[in-house]
Design a protein around this nucleic acid. Structure first.
Length: 378
RNA sequence: GGGGAGGUAGCGAAGUGGCUAAACGCGGUUGACUGUAAAUCAAUUCUCUCCGAGUUCGGCGGUUCGAAUCCGUCCCUCCCCA
């Protein structure tokens, strides 16, 4: 019997927001949750101990990148991704589908799979739905993804329809290739901004009966209103007793909008990337630590924050570290941003459980001057 | 004392008569970043009432239609030999 499962705890009385427990072979985690991204088997600059301290749930890694380096056989020989990177918490691997999009300059998609020219040495490589599963089986993550195509936005209805059909065939092939019941394989809903294609894709995936469903094709340059429509068009066709994962979304406004619609899982490079570049998420909004105004500010990044960085370091010191390109600065800022989003989801869960999520979301949007159309919550 | 090299914007450094308010790098300032080819990328960095105008290339004085670039002179720095 699979060690994976999802328990729905409570659904907000006034919205689709819900709390739940994701059960995995490496422990239970509460949803909604934000999942830090560690593409190359490391959340850049952040140690597993630090992830534990900030109460991170699942962390992500990437099939495409680990396939190229060090190679899935190395990870398998190490005893799997958990042992390899000394992480004793649930791990999710993306399928490489997004790289089809982000490396579009050197790829060719056929029915059989995707031919890449890899970015490290230019070697031609071939990734099929079955290969993506084999690699992810070897990596050994708790949650794995079907190989999908993540088309550019916007794409024509014709192209998107063909792409969705192919993604569905790939999902079926991947599901048939996947035999490890301790790894939960998620299907990915595509279809761009087309309601009919989202519906078709979602229903077809549900018919295949996956343990969880991802909403993909997001964070590819569409505006916020479109993103929310994509969620709406997908999520109504997904079963309530299975987890929903919105891929690649990590701005605060989009997370809250996603939760409102019933999304349980989010991942994004945003908090860690902008942290390395000196931008911080705070209860008062965006803060660029490099700004001259922080030179003599010996207070914390955010007085409301309980993270390790805010408990121990000043803005002036962090500004100094970032300006000097010191790794400790990138690490401390990454810790803060990740904890900021994780803490936000903790507050979200509490609000849902108390049936006041819409009030919580409205108050947050009002405070940060956000809206549901085109705002930028970082 | 003798010989040599050189002084260009915050720093380093190109430029040797007009296309130069002056390349480029660093530093400074600001911005971007959403299933990570990202410790990356972009803008800006003499002054002003910023369309446009004004004052710059050690100082002063010349030559020239025109000078950071040529000439004279003064000041300063560095190196080698005594």
């Amino acid at each position: 019997m699979s060690k994976f499962g999802f328990t729905l705890l409570h659904t907000d009385k006034n919205s689709g927001a819900r709390t739940g427990i994701l059960h995995t072979p490496h422990g239970d985690v509460l949803t909604p949750m934000f999942m830090p991204v560690g593409t190359l088997a490391t959340v850049k600059f952040v140690s597993p101990e630090e992830l534990t301290a900030m109460k991170a749930g699942v962390i992500l890694s990437n099939t495409y990148h680990l396939w190229l380096r060090p190679g899935e056989q190395v990870v398998k020989a190490a005893g799997g991704l958990h042992k390899f990177m000394n992480v004793d918490r649930p791990i999710l691997t993306d399928s490489g589908g997004f790289q089809v999009f982000s490396l579009a300059d050197s790829r060719k998609i056929t029915e059989e799979g995707v031919t890449f020219k890899n970015h490290l040495n230019g070697d031609t490589m071939f990734l099929s739905p079955e290969k993506a599963i084999q690699i992810q089986n070897d990596l050994g993550a708790d949650i794995i993804m079907s190989l999908d195509e993540c088309p550019a936005y916007p794409s024509t209805h014709n192209y998107m329809k063909a792409s969705v059909e192919r993604t569905l065939r790939w999902a079926k092939r991947g599901k048939e290739a996947h035999q490890n019941e301790n790894q939960a394989l998620f299907g990915i809903v595509q279809g761009g901004d087309y309601a009919d294609l989202r519906e078709h894709c979602a229903k077809a995936l549900v018919d295949m009966d996956f343990p969880g469903y991802s909403i993909g094709g997001t964070s590819v340059g569409e505006d916020k209103a479109t993103l929310y429509r994509m969620i709406d068009h997908s999520i109504v066709h997904l079963p309530t007793h299975k987890p929903r994962y919105l891929m690649g979304v990590g701005s605060t406004d989009a997370i809250l909008e996603g939760v409102l619609r019933g999304v349980d899982m989010f991942d994004c490079v945003l908090p860690t990337r902008i942290a390395r570049h000196g931008t911080l998420m705070t209860s008062e909004g965006r803060l660029n630590i490099r700004n001259a105004k922080n030179e003599m500010d010996f207070g914390p990044i955010d007085p409301q924050c309980d993270c390790y960085t805010c408990q121990n370091y000043s803005r002036a010191y962090l500004r100094h570290l970032i300006r000097c390109d010191e790794g400790l600065g990138q690490r401390l800022l990454s810790i803060h941003n990740l904890r900021f989003l994780i803490k936000l989801t903790e507050e979200v869960r509490q609000a849902i459980n108390e049936d006041r999520f819409t009030e919580f979301k409205d108050a947050y949007f009002k405070k940060h001057h956000l809206n549901s159309v085109n705002s930028r919550g970082f």
